[in-house]
Design a protein around this nucleic acid. Structure first.
Length: 315
DNA sequence: CGTTCAACCTGGGCGC
DNA sequence: TGCGCCCAGGTTGAAC
């Protein structure tokens, strides 16, 4: 669920809490095993209490909540939602998966909304919560860890970081050190828009192709942010105030195996790359032409461009 | 070194 | 109805 657009939506959804004072921080130890929390819950709670939320930022798929007091050094509460984590100001889907609860005083505690809270809810418990100083923040979210953000990535960025790789381009786009924020859903959508076969080895892509990938990434991610992310199927993902995202309606390939491509009508294919599903349209995203550069005899091309009898693949 | 893979978890859906 | 298996938006560190 949470890739760049969803995490950005979460961050925007809690930005209104800037200035609020943290009255208390709780890390419920329910029947579910606790997720990774560092330092330990007791210490985080002690260090958060009484401080204010100063700012909210996103680094790739992480949210960094800056907290500080008047005379204390700033710290950042860095939250990684991973697969099922959500930042909520609304009531949680289930009480037992609430991993963190910040009780807040916004100063505007009118009778209309007497109680303010910020929750981290995580069904599978793969998410993480860390309280870091400036150095720790840089280690966790700095340039050594995360590449350029997907909303602003350029063709040159991608070519420089991935151009020499033999990995399939879809697998490579999931590498957060190459470009930050792209996950399994948006990697598929981006390559469909760029009209590139997800299995294409990175070192076969031209500068123009990287430019197309980067442009598609910026456009798809910006559109997904505008639609507040994707809520698919099990409808786990919600905005901070408990609304579904809307971008799933605009998915062209993800989760659509066997259904007609919105562009050409051909059947969307599902394959597995690096243990994860990849969706694409074999017609709109053709395999790249064999690089018949000088001195290299053209390999025996695959024969039949003739009548392609594309059978609808069943799942 | 680059790349692959199992592991971390819960829960929904499916086939038997 | 129940059981076992497979699947899922991500990341890490060990193993090739």
């Amino acid at each position: 669920m949470p890739e760049l657009p969803e995490v950005e939506t979460m961050a925007r959804g809690i930005a209104g809490l800037c200035g609020a004072r943290i009255v208390a921080a709780r890390f419920p130890q329910g029947p579910c095993r606790p997720l990774a929390i560092a330092p330990d819950p007791t210490e985080i709670a002690a260090r958060l209490a009484g401080h204010r939320i100063v700012s909210v930022a996103r680094f790739g798929k992480r949210v960094a909540i800056e907290v500080g007091g008047e005379e204390s050094t700033p710290h950042w509460l860095v939250i990684e939602p991973r697969m099922t984590g959500l930042l909520l100001v609304a009531e949680p889907p289930t009480p037992q998966h609430v991993r963190m609860e910040l009780e807040l005083d916004t100063g505007k505690g009118s009778s209309a909304s007497p109680r303010h809270q910020l929750l981290f809810w995580d069904q599978r418990g793969l998410g993480t919560i860390r309280l870091l100083d400036a150095k720790g923040l840089d280690r966790a979210c700095g340039a050594a860890k995360l590449g350029p953000d997907g909303l602003v990535v350029t063709g040159d960025d991608l070519a420089e970081r991935l151009g020499g790789s033999k990995r399939g381009v879809k697998v490579a786009l999931l590498d957060q050190k190459a470009v930050a924020g792209i996950g399994n859903i948006y990697a598929a959508e981006i390559l469909h828009r760029a009209a590139i076969d997800p299995r294409t080895p990175c070192d076969r892509l031209s500068a123009a192709a990287w430019e197309a990938v980067a442009r598609a990434a910026r456009e798809i991610l910006a559109s997904a942010v505008a639609h507040e992310g994707s809520s698919i199927g099990d409808e786990l993902y919600r905005t901070a105030d408990n609304r579904k995202g809307g971008f799933q309606m605009l998915h062209c390939v993800y989760g659509r195996a066997g259904t007609p491509c919105k562009t050409c009508g051909g059947a969307i294919q599902r394959i597995v790359q690096a243990q994860r599903s990849t969706f694409f349209c074999a017609t709109c995203q053709p395999r790249p032409r064999s690089p018949t550069r000088r001195g290299q005899t053209a390999k025996p091309r695959r024969k039949p461009p003739a009548t392609l009898v594309r059978r609808g693949t069943k799942a």
